[in-house]
Write a protein that binds this DNA or RNA. Structure first.
Lengths: 202, 202
DNA sequence: CTTGCATTTGACCAACTGGTCAAAACAACG
DNA sequence: CGTTGTTTTGACCAGTTGGTCAAATGCAAG
C-alpha cells in the first residue's frame, strides 16, 4: 500500500507541475532546464529531484494529466443530441479551454511540433479511434440532412485549429489586435462561422 | 565593396540554412544545438562558425528570410478583385505554403509559441499595419454586400489557423487519418467552408 | 609550382546541463 | 525532551553546450 502524500508533498508536487507547465509549454522539452523549473517552483534543483526522479518524469506527468482532459470535450459530443447544438457546444468548450488553459494547449502544440515523440502511439490509437467514431456520428447527421454535407474529419481538424489558435498564437493575435482581449469576439465569430457552415441548404 | 560569394560559400551557407531550418523548426531555438545543425549540414562545428558567427545569427537569417515570404500571400489580396475569389485565392495560397514549406511554418509557430521574443516588434508594427489595412478592405466588401458580414480580423485569423494547422500539426493529422495525404481533401474542405461563410444571404 | 587567399580541422575552454550524495535541518509524535 | 522519518541543501560529477584559435589543407591565378 502506497503512503498518503503529506501536505508538503502535495504543495511541492503541485508547484513543480505548475512551474514545469510554464517552462515546457514555452520552450519545449529540450529547451527547458531543471534550473528554470526549480526557480519557477521556488525550490532548489536537488529538492526538485526529490519529488520527481528526472526531467522526463515531470514532463511525462504533465503530458499524462493533459491527455486526460484534452479529449474530454470531444468525448462529450453526443450522437443523441441536436447536431448543430452539439457541434456548437464542442466548439465553445474547446475555445474555453484555449482561454482558461493556454499553457496546456501550448504544451500539446510543442509536443506535436516536435513530431509527437512521446505521444505518437496515443495519437494513432486512442485519438484516431475516438475521432473516427465521432466522425461517423457527424457523417450520419449529414446523411440524414440534419447538417450540411461536410468532411467530418476535416471538420474536426477545423474546430481544433480555429480554437487552439487563440491559445497557441496568443501573442500574434494580441499584437495584431493591439492588445485587446480576443476571446469575446472570437466566440461570436466562431458561432457565426459554424452556423453558416452547418446550415442545411433550404 | 563586399566580395561576391564563391561557389563554396553559396553551397555551404545554403546547406547550413537548410539544416538549421530542419532542426530549429523541430526543436525551437533553445532546443537546437550547433552540433545537430553541423551534422545535418555535413560540416564540422568550427566550419559552421566560419560561415555564421553564432547560433543566433543562423536563426536570425532564417527568420528574416521567412518573414520576407510569409506575408506575401496576404499582401496579394487585392481590393480591386472579386471579393470571394480574392479570399479563396488567399486561402489556397496559404494552404499551398503549408504543403510546400512546412518547415518554415513550424519555425514560425515555434517562434510564436515562445512568445515571439525575436519578432514581437515586427508583429506589432508591420504585421498589424498590413492586417488592419486588409481588414478594412474586407470590411468594405461586407458593407457593400459583396460578401456576408464577418469580423475581418478574425476571418484572417481563421485563414491562418485553418491552413497552418496542416503544417504545424502534420503528425497529428496524419495519425488521425491513418497516414493518408491530407492536402487534397483539405483544399476541398476549405473551399466549401469559406464558400458557405462568405455567401451573401439571399 | 608557388604564392596568397579561402576553407577546414583538432584541440581546447568556460559555462551550463541533468543528476547524485551525504549531511544537515525540520517536523511529528510519544 | 528525544527519536524517527521527512524534507532541504551544498558540494560535487561527468557530459554537453556555444564558441575560439592556431595550424593545416585546398585551391586558383600568375
Amino acid at each position: 500500500m502506497t503512503k498518503a502524500p503529506t501536505r508538503i508533498q502535495q504543495r511541492n508536487r503541485a508547484a513543480i507541475l505548475s512551474a514545469g507547465l510554464d517552462v515546457f509549454s514555452q520552450f519545449g522539452f529540450r529547451g527547458t532546464t531543471l534550473d528554470q523549473i526549480a526557480e519557477a517552483a521556488g525550490l532548489s534543483k536537488p529538492n526538485l529531484l526529490y519529488y520527481f526522479p528526472s526531467k522526463e518524469a515531470i514532463h511525462a506527468a504533465l503530458l499524462e494529466r493533459l491527455l486526460e482532459t484534452w479529449l474530454d470535450p470531444l468525448k462529450a459530443l453526443d450522437a443523441q443530441g441536436e447536431p448543430v447544438e452539439e457541434i456548437m457546444a464542442y466548439v465553445q468548450r474547446k475555445l474555453a479551454m484555449s482561454r482558461d488553459y493556454p499553457r496546456e494547449s501550448r504544451l500539446f502544440a510543442n509536443e506535436i511540433l516536435q513530431g509527437a515523440p512521446r505521444i505518437g502511439a496515443i495519437l494513432q490509437d486512442d485519438l484516431k479511434t475516438l475521432v473516427d467514431e465521432k466522425a461517423k456520428i457527424i457523417q450520419s447527421w449529414a446523411d440524414a440532412g440534419r447538417i450540411a454535407q461536410v468532411d467530418p474529419h476535416h471538420l474536426i481538424f477545423s474546430i481544433w485549429s480555429l480554437t487552439q489558435h487563440y491559445a497557441d498564437f496568443d501573442v500574434q493575435v494580441r499584437a495584431v489586435l493591439g492588445g485587446r482581449d480576443p476571446f469575446p469576439d472570437a466566440a461570436a465569430h466562431l458561432e457565426t462561422l459554424f452556423a453558416r457552415m452547418l446550415k442545411v441548404e433550404p
